[in-house]
Simulated scan of single mutants.
Amino acid sequence: MTPAELPPVRFDTKIAVVLRSDLEPWQRLNVTAFLVSGLGTELPEVIGEPYADADGTPYLPMFRQPVLVFEADKEMLTAAHGRALARALPRSVFTSDLFATGNDRDNRAAVRAVPGDQLDLVGLAVYGPRNAVDKVIKGARMHP
Rank of each mutant, 00 (worst) to 15 (best):
M1W: 07
T2A: 12
T2P: 00
P3M: 12
P3V: 08
A4Q: 10
A4H: 09
E5Q: 12
L6Y: 00
L6Q: 15
L6N: 04
P7V: 08
V9M: 10
F11D: 06
F11Y: 12
T13L: 01
T13S: 12
A16V: 02
A16Y: 06
A16R: 06
V17K: 04
V17G: 05
R20K: 04
P25N: 09
W26A: 09
Q27G: 07
L29K: 00
L29E: 05
T32A: 15
A33N: 14
V36M: 09
G38D: 02
L39Q: 07
L39I: 13
L39D: 06
G40L: 10
T41N: 04
T41L: 11
T41A: 14
L43S: 03
L43C: 01
E45F: 09
E45N: 03
I47H: 05
I47R: 05
I47G: 07
I47K: 05
G48A: 10
G48F: 06
E49A: 13
Y51N: 03
A52T: 09
D55H: 10
G56C: 06
Y59V: 01
L60S: 13
F63M: 11
Q65V: 02
Q65N: 02
Q65G: 05
V67R: 02
L68H: 11
V69S: 01
F70H: 12
D73F: 05
K74L: 01
K74R: 12
K74W: 03
L77S: 01
A80F: 07
A84L: 05
A86L: 09
A88I: 00
S92A: 14
S92T: 15
V93T: 15
F94E: 02
F94L: 07
S96P: 00
L98R: 06
F99I: 06
A100S: 15
A100D: 14
T101N: 01
N103S: 09
R105A: 14
D106A: 14
R108G: 01
R108K: 13
A109Q: 15
A110R: 11
A110D: 05
V111M: 13
V111N: 09
R112K: 15
A113H: 10
V114I: 15
V114T: 15
D117G: 04
Q118V: 00
Q118S: 11
L119Y: 09
L121P: 11
L121A: 11
L124Y: 07
L124T: 10
A125E: 07
V126W: 12
Y127A: 15
G128Y: 05
G128P: 12
R130D: 10
R130A: 11
N131M: 04
A132Q: 14
V133D: 08
V136S: 12
K138D: 13
G139T: 07
M142R: 14
H143C: 07
